[in-house]
Design a binder for these strands. Sequence first.
RNA 1: GGACGGGUGGGUGAGUGGCUAAAACCAGCAGACUGUAAAUCUGCCGCUCCUUGCGGGCUACGGAGGUUCGAAUCCUCCCCCGUCCA
Length: 312
Amino acid sequence: MSGECRLVVILGPTASGKSTLAVELARKTGGEVVCCDSTQIYRHFDIGTGKLPIADQKRIPHHLTDLAEPEDVFTAGDYRRQALRALEDISGRGKLSILTVGTGLYLRALLEGLDDLPGRSETLRERLRQRAAARGAEYLHRILVKCDPAGAAQIAPRDTQKIIRAMEVCLLTGKPASELRGRNRTGLTGFRVLKIGLMPPREKLYAQIDRRVDAMYELGWVEEVRSLIRQGISANAKPFTFLGYGQIREHIANAASSPLDAVVREIQKETRQYAKRQITWFRRERDVHWLAGFGHEAEIERRALEIIQSQS
RNA sequence: GGACGGGUGGGUGAGUGGCUAAAACCAGCAGACUGUAAAUCUGCCGCUCCUUGCGGGCUACGGAGGUUCGAAUCCUCCCCCGUCCA
């Protein structure tokens, strides 16, 4: 890879219009779109994860969607590896990469790199999970304090998920995870990164989220889930933890549960809460050119283009 | 018209004399988060003042009075809602 390539990053909460903006920018700059979203990675989970229809994806090259099967566990580390290859490929062809990011952790993994730590060990995790289930998360946390006092201090005693990861690293390496952090971390090199953030007014964002979920429903989301179940995808498959998929699956499996419109309203609510968490993460992101609107607005698109051009 | 049941903070709802600005849950807001991240977890959540303290003041449990050192909790009247009887 020669010299400085450019990487445009578009970040923002769900429903802020990242994809629309990315496609427009790609069209005008001859760029290609790279997805940075933990859910669009999974095949067959299309409507609820907000994937663009295939027809739209065909017009502009899209990368890093549909990489994993539903029963796979795809991680931030996997994403980093795949993304590096994709970026290299795109810039190798002299094209501009436009990254649409909804998953802050994946962006960070790509830009700053991950610590050189062991990946998951499902057997170890299973044991730890059982321990936590039987004796409580606090019990595991107390053990973690012994293995890794500094690390334990930063993890809430009830945060089972993070405790398990820290324990996993300790047991696999024989060293405290916190001691291993920050070493040998290699960030993304060879790219000049330009971040554009979409931050529509909260009220409008929430209204847009509601509309978007309604639209997904209209598009046949429930049918999609029915077909996923028919294909025999396990209820424990990771994508069934994605917003909406679990609720809809539950509704189908247990017809007596709650009426569909209640399910839709629940999904809208949870999506709003998710958007808030994304906003919290993105607020800490450095060097972002924030735009206070939606990616589908002409004015926002104009300004985004202006930013890109002024930086070249 | 009569008989019960009920009206509590944005919502649901506990509380039946002081430990109650009022449980719990939800919603909301804010935050943390390097291999599950659309996940997981944390804090705040009546108003207000300052010397920011397990600090002060004010307002609050349908309304108005009353009993009491003290009331969301007891009494009286009124208003509203639900169910039942006429």
